[in-house]
């Protein structure tokens, strides 16, 4: 890697080597975080662009999933299992949220016969 001109303004992207050992050769914490970041952003974009309520909730689930990856990655790279324990809790929350949200979606669907999010604009200022 040639030492390109690093813009002083841009943050330097240095991988967190340091004391955290590599569980798996060649794969560093950053890899996982990058993947979870991208997945999280995809979920976010999905949530922002899609108008179907259910798909929006699906995207939130996607974001939960992405967070889960990051959690586990951190946990494992620190060789302890708090990450995983935490994912389980994330899981419960996701399940609860899914249940409720979907019940709501059904209700909303019943009310307006459509799943389009932008129909509901009564809560305006």
């Amino acid at each position: 890697m040639d030492t390109t001109m690093t813009m002083s303004m841009l943050p330097t992207l240095v991988l967190a080597q340091g004391p955290v050992p590599e569980l798996v050769p060649g794969i560093t914490l950053f890899h996982y975080l990058a993947v979870s970041g991208i997945m999280f952003v995809l979920g976010l974009i999905g949530f922002l662009t899609r108008r179907n309520l259910i798909v929006m909730f699906l995207c939130t689930e996607l974001m939960f999933q992405a967070a889960g990856i990051a959690l586990i990655a951190f946990g494992r790279f620190h060789l302890n299992h708090t990450g995983e324990a935490f994912v389980i809790f994330v899981l419960t929350v996701a399940a609860a949220e899914a249940a409720l949200a979907l019940a709501l979606v059904v209700l909303l669907f019943r009310r307006k016969e459509t799943l389009d999010g932008s129909v509901w604009t009564s809560m305006k200022g």
Partner: peptide, 15 residues
């Protein structure tokens, strides 16, 4: 007008 009631509007703003 900023409180337009459109969900997506709020979401984009948040993001």
């Amino acid at each position: 007008p900023s409180q337009s009631g459109v969900l997506h509007g709020y979401a984009v703003a948040m993001a």
